[in-house]
Design a protein around this nucleic acid. Structure first.
Length: 865
RNA sequence: GGGCGCUUAGCUCAGCUGGUCAGAGCACCUGCCUUACAAGCAGGCGGUCGGGGGUUCGAGUCCCUCAGCGCCCACCA
């Protein structure tokens, strides 16, 4: 720690937190304090797979919460001597960005339009009447918008003091991410892990794209049960069914009941005829048909829900599709409707939305006398795209999938054992992974019928008859990636062959955003692009993230790494908790009362907000509490003042001689500091930053209130230079340790106070060395500090109880205690006498009986005139 | 319906492998200008550790059960 004093800042007369954030964030940028040094060996590197935040909105406190917790871990590791690989990414591709751009600029993407180099969005966006633009124009607007959003995000992250290396920043729409996504996909394809299939798919009729299982959510919706009967084709009793989707009657392909249901046994194997449409459909049995639901007989339509899909597949039923991709009924009836009344009834429904069609078909059924009773209102769970506002439909379409164990028991088992292999923090979060992987019911659907995303790097040949050959796609060379098949031309073809017979056509779809972000380790670590970096950083050490994206991001990343590298993408995953608002509800942007991070940072300061975030136990939901931020701010101020005192009393020199600590009390203090370092280090190693903070903070306050007070007078020199040096040295060793223990949590104030007396950044300083502290504390008797503190507390209590100033002189104090404690106190008697302003201190050994302290106070001075 | 988590002072939460574990901070009350800090210091009030069983010499701490809250998942008739 030797160095020139001149390089150090002055200790300010009146320390303040004002201006610390701006000063140090600029300094850290200028000094490249957090720059990753890629010359280090893998064993010396700690690599963090940071969640790329979605930049299509604004950051809220939930994001700050989790990222700060990760930053504390990163800072600890860096001080511990590991080279921290800590990049930030922006998730800017996909539907959220498209929506934001549509509403921000007042435009709408129309892929049929040609590129217009001069296109400019309307000066005054009209969301009701968006201006159509070509896909390339639309993508340009997306890029323009996200670039601006990303600057705002970066500013906030710098403001909260995230120690990321900003030179490593990536975006999920950027060329690196596109190249990695396309390469990974092509390799999946080559190995048979990616495949295209024409299949019933959950479909969002608003965005007109397929969605994946992981993006679904159930919402309780109002609906109604409608009853009507099918007539037995061969005559006999009609069979009544109950349905919430009467409008799908023309798409009915069968009825189904449970195999053990005796009520309908006679119908199984026969056909029944649908009302209104007169279509004959078979009656089947299936285990999933529940006798106690509805009438016990269900109508199978193509497709009303995912159960229909299961029945359709397992009972080998035909497709009778009536829904278009925009959510409206097709203009023409299915071929199975052959009767004139049936076709006339369908004509009443054609072109309507499912909602409108439902209203109309109920009228038709009622008019025909087919409706039994009136519809009974119910509420029931309905599947939605998590970002959508209309119920999902199921349509048959050609989509790309990646195998994820949803249809393959061996792969599922392998992925479950990856979950076992991964170290979870906290451990109980693993069950979410197990639940999800165990409950998968299909492969991972990665294609989206949208515009702003990574295109599938494929073309298809067009036959002489104009038909597209999907079975044998044309694949680009990996070296050419990334490519855009809608503008790039496949090898052996020319541009004018696009879309014509004998020519080619590009795959029109893009990949879902998770198909890219699941490759964040590959993207950041330089997979195939930078083998040297990759070797030093992959597999990564830590994946920090929220619990809600275990099923998406975490799982998908495990899948990709397992398939591509046969390894876990990281050794550890730390899962943060939720922020709850004061009503114990999850904080969400939709509520108007959410405070913005910037507002809080301005009001309380970055260190204070970080203190609040770092106080929350890993994985534990935490109330949003500005009170905690105020506590954090007070802590930071206290650190300023205590530092000013300790540095000042030590005459400003950075050098300390550890051998100068001679006094038993001082050694006892250092022994406690060493214990603290042990505890904080162990906690941090287990990713429990909150415990490390709590212990450090608790120690710091007693350090200020007790240890500092006990030795203050001696430090000033009341017992001579040697005793003073012992005190100041112990205080300075303690303070230096505390600065470093606080640095991960309160990076701004720790850096500020460190700069007053030390060279370089505290964030690159070595984590405190327990062995050094123990050496200075050699032979310490912890009782000395404990007993002295307890005795001082009794003296203070006597003064406070008498409502006298703590400066009041004690004429006589008698301490009675067990012999070993009296012996310990005798070693600190001078310090106790001075800090308690005790004139006459008597120490009495009492082998038995309660320890006691008798305090006699000086008479109060006469009231001053 | 299944899974996970939570339930400790008015509030926010610690209590790690059962034996000074009944704690901290905030709030509240009472004092104190004490030469690092009044954005401070000293002291005080305050809880049958959700209910009920059980294991044990001994249980916030382990087991069972019930209740409430939260989150995730589940085949929408």
């Amino acid at each position: 720690m030797a160095g020139s004093v001149s390089a150090m800042a002055e200790v300010p007369e009146k320390p303040t937190l004002d201006g610390l954030e701006a000063r140090w964030r600029d300094r850290w940028e200028r000094d490249a304090t957090y720059r990753f040094d890629r010359s280090k060996e893998r064993s010396a590197i700690f690599s963090i797979d940071t969640p790329p935040p979605t930049v299509s909105g604004s950051l809220h406190m939930g994001s700050v919460f989790g990222y700060v917790q990760t930053d504390c871990i990163a800072r600890f590791r860096r001080m511990r001597g590991e080279e921290v690989f800590y990049p930030m990414g922006w998730d800017d591709n996909g539907l959220p960005t498209e929506r934001r751009v549509e509403s921000f600029f007042g435009v709408r993407c129309d892929p049929s339009l040609p590129y217009d180099p001069a296109f400019e969005p309307p000066a005054e966006p009209d969301r009701k009447r968006p201006v159509p633009c070509s896909r390339p124009n639309f993508v340009e607007l997306c890029l323009r918008r996200t670039a601006e959003d990303e600057l705002v995000f970066e500013d906030l992250w710098r403001r909260v003091g995230l120690s990321v290396d900003w030179t490593l920043t990536y975006t999920t729409i950027g060329p690196k991410a596109q190249r990695a996504s396309q390469r990974a996909f092509l390799r999946n394809l080559a190995r048979g892990e990616a495949y295209a299939a024409e299949a019933p798919t959950l479909w969002d009729v608003t965005d007109q794209t397929a969605v994946a299982q992981a993006e679904l959510e159930d919402r309780e919706q109002a609906g109604a049960l409608h009853r009507y009967a099918f007539r037995a084709t061969a005559g006999g009793e009609p069979v009544t069914i109950e349905t919430t989707r009467p409008e799908l009657l023309p798409a009915c392909v069968a009825l189904v009941c449970h195999p053990d249901d005796d009520r309908y046994r006679h119908l199984v194997g026969s056909t029944v005829t649908s009302p209104l449409f007169g279509v004959d459909v078979p009656v089947h049995t299936h285990e999933l048909a529940q006798p106690d639901k509805g009438t016990g007989v269900a109508m199978i339509c193509t497709f009303g829900d995912v159960t229909d899909v299961i029945w359709w597949r397992e009972l080998d039923l035909p497709v009778r599709n009536i829904l278009e991709r925009n959510g409206r009924l097709r203009p023409e009836p299915p071929d199975a409707i052959t009767t004139n009344p049936g076709r006339a009834a369908y004509a009443e429904l054609a072109g309507k939305t499912t909602k409108q069609a439902q209203v109309r078909i109920v009228e038709l059924l009622r008019e025909a006398g087919e409706l039994e009773g009136e519809p009974r209102p119910i509420t029931h769970p309905v599947k939605f795209y998590e970002r959508g506002d209309r119920p999902l439909e199921i349509v048959t379409s050609r989509q790309w999938y990646i195998r994820n164990g949803g249809r393959d028991a061996d792969l599922r088992k392998a992925l479950l054992s990856r979950g076992e292999e991964l170290k979870w923090h906290p451990g109980f979060m693993k069950s979410r992974y197990d639940n999800w992987v165990g409950g998968l019911n299909g492969d991972w659907l990665i294609s989206r019928q949208r515009f702003f995303g990574v295109p599938f790097p494929l073309w298809y040949r067009i036959g002489a008859d104009g038909s597209v050959d999907h079975a044998d796609p044309i694949v680009p060379d990996e070296d050419l990636l990334p490519i855009d098949p809608s503008s790039d031309v496949p090898p052996g073809f020319t541009a004018d062959q696009r879309g014509v017979s004998g020519g080619f056509v590009g795959d029109p779809d893009i990949m879902d955003t998770w198909a890219t972000s699941s490759l964040s380790p590959q993207i950041t670590c330089g997979w195939e692009d930078d083998a040297d970096l990759f070797g030093r950083t992959f597999p990564m050490d830590l994946r920090p993230q929220g619990p809600e994206i275990i099923r998406t991001w975490l799982f998908a990343t495990v899948v990709r790494s397992h398939l591509e590298h046969d390894v876990l993408p990281w050794s550890d995953a730390s899962i943060n908790g939720w922020i709850l608002d004061p009503d114990r509800k999850k904080m969400s942007k939709s509520k108007g009362n959410v405070v913005t991070p910037v507002d809080l940072l301005e009001r309380h300061g970055s260190d204070a907000v970080r203190y609040w975030a770092a106080s929350a136990r890993p994985g534990t939901d935490t109330a949003f509490d500005e009170g905690q931020m105020k506590v954090g701010r007070r802590l930071a101020i206290k650190l300023l003042n205590a530092s000013k005192f300790v540095i000042g009393v030590g005459e400003g020199a950075a050098d300390v001689d550890p051998d100068a600590v001679r006094q038993p009390l001082d050694r006892a203090l250092l022994a406690e500091v060493a214990d603290l370092v042990d505890e904080a280090t162990t906690a941090f190693e287990g990713y429990d930053y909150a415990r490390a903070l709590e212990r450090t903070e608790a120690f710091f306050w007693t350090f200020c209130d007790d240890a500092l007070e006990l030795v203050k007078g001696r430090a000033y020199g009341s017992l001579g230079p040697t005793a003073s040096a012992s005190a100041t040295t112990a205080l300075r060793l303690s303070l230096s340790t505390l600065h470093r223990l606080f640095a991960p949590f309160l990076p701004f104030v720790a850096e500020e106070t460190w700069s007053w007396w030390q060279e370089g950044s505290v964030h690159r300083a070595p984590w405190p060395d327990v062995a050094e502290l123990r050496a200075s504390a050699d032979g310490a008797n912890p009782l000395v500090l404990q007993v002295a503190t307890a005795a001082l507390a009794e003296v203070r209590k006597a003064k406070t109880t008498a409502k006298r100033s703590l400066r009041t002189e004690v004429t006589a104090a008698v301490v009675r205690d067990r012999p070993e404690r009296i012996a310990a106190l005798r070693l600190a008697a001078d310090d106790l006498r001075e800090s308690g302003r005790i004139v006459s201190l008597e120490l009495v050994e009492a082998a038995d009986g309660e320890p006691s302290v008798e305090v006699s106070l000086a008479e109060p001075e006469p009231a001053a005139s």
